[in-house]
């Protein structure tokens, strides 16, 4: 008797899957144009592949080609954050947050510094050797080095 609700819940699950997606009823993120990947002047790279970006922001690639440590910078919940994570890291914001919490709570890594505004990200990246971050294209004014995505 208690378990008669299960078929109903399963039906809800599959209906949800069917009607969701990037433009569906249950879509979780909006799009707000492009993002720009920025880095500190000390970074030797001027372009990176999408795979490189993903490896860096998942902590699998930790050094630039000159041996300098990669210091990641994150932007707090925003449309630009959602777009960057989905396009380049291939994770939803929730999955990305859980990924880094897993690193922190299992002794495998430290959650990157997270800032509330693009201006704070720019300031941190400008002043931290080896730093890399992302900001909305609309906030970029060539005051910091940008990286071309191949």
């Amino acid at each position: 008797m208690k378990w008669r609700i299960i078929p109903v819940l399963i039906a809800v699950l599959f209906i949800g899957i069917a009607v969701s997606g990037p433009t569906g009823l249950f879509a979780t993120s909006g799009r707000a144009g492009d993002v720009v990947v920025i880095c500190n002047d000390s970074v030797p790279a001027s372009s990176l592949s999408r795979d490189n970006i993903q490896e860096m922001f998942l902590g699998r690639k930790t050094r630039w080609s000159d041996g300098q440590k990669i210091t990641l910078t994150l932007l707090k919940d925003s449309d630009a954050n959602d777009v960057f994570l989905e396009e380049y890291v291939e994770k939803t914001p929730q999955q990305f947050r859980d990924y880094w919490k897993k690193q922190a709570f299992t002794g495998r890594g430290r959650i990157p510094d997270t800032f509330a505004s693009p201006q704070e990200v720019i300031e941190f990246v400008k002043n931290t050797p080896g730093a890399v971050g992302y900001i909305p294209a609309s906030a970029y004014e060539s005051q910091v080095k940008s990286i071309t995505i191949e």
Binding site: L9, I10, L13, G16, I17, F26, T28, T92, P93, Q94
Partner: peptide
């Protein structure tokens, strides 16, 4: 197992 997040606050799994 399969799990689906319908919204940022609701997930269903089996």
């Amino acid at each position: 197992s399969v799990a689906y997040r319908f919204t940022p606050w609701f997930e269903l799994g089996t």
